[in-house]
């Protein structure tokens, strides 16, 4: 079981990977390998998002909530406490 920061870090990595592929695919729409990669990244990110949200609260408001309403929970992304430490290491994610 990953802790919150580990989970958030991997979701952030995968989301960034997906966004970078998305921009690439916008101008290379026939690159099948990149589409395959994109699909894998998005699927994995979705699973990890669900796992994160079950324990640590909502990442987007388009989601179910316990009571009281979890969307308003602290911390928010601009706060120091919200973010994970990078510690200069690279983050490799298996797909």
């Amino acid at each position: 079981m990953m802790n919150r920061d580990e989970l958030l870090k991997i979701i952030s990595v995968l989301d960034f990977y997906a966004l970078d592929l998305q921009l690439y695919l916008n101008t290379h729409p026939t690159d099948r390998d990149a589409i395959q990669k994109y699909n894998n990244v998005v699927k994995r990110a979705k699973e990890l998002r669900e796992e994160y949200e079950r324990t640590y609260g909502m990442l987007t408001p388009q989601n179910i909530s316990d009571s009281p309403w979890r969307w308003i929970e602290n911390p928010w992304p601009w706060q120091y406490k919200f973010n994970f430490d990078l510690e200069g290491d690279e983050c490799n994610v298996d797909l």
């Binding site: 870090k9 952030s12 989301d15 990442l59 987007t60 408001p61 388009q62 994970f84 430490d85 990078l86």
Partner: peptide, 19 residues
């Protein structure tokens, strides 16, 4: 969905400044 964007409650890249 009734909004133009959905807010994602995280940064694109972490900002954690101690000093």
């Amino acid at each position: 969905m009734s909004v133009m964007w959905i807010y994602d409650k995280k940064l694109q890249f972490p900002v954690k400044i101690k000093r």
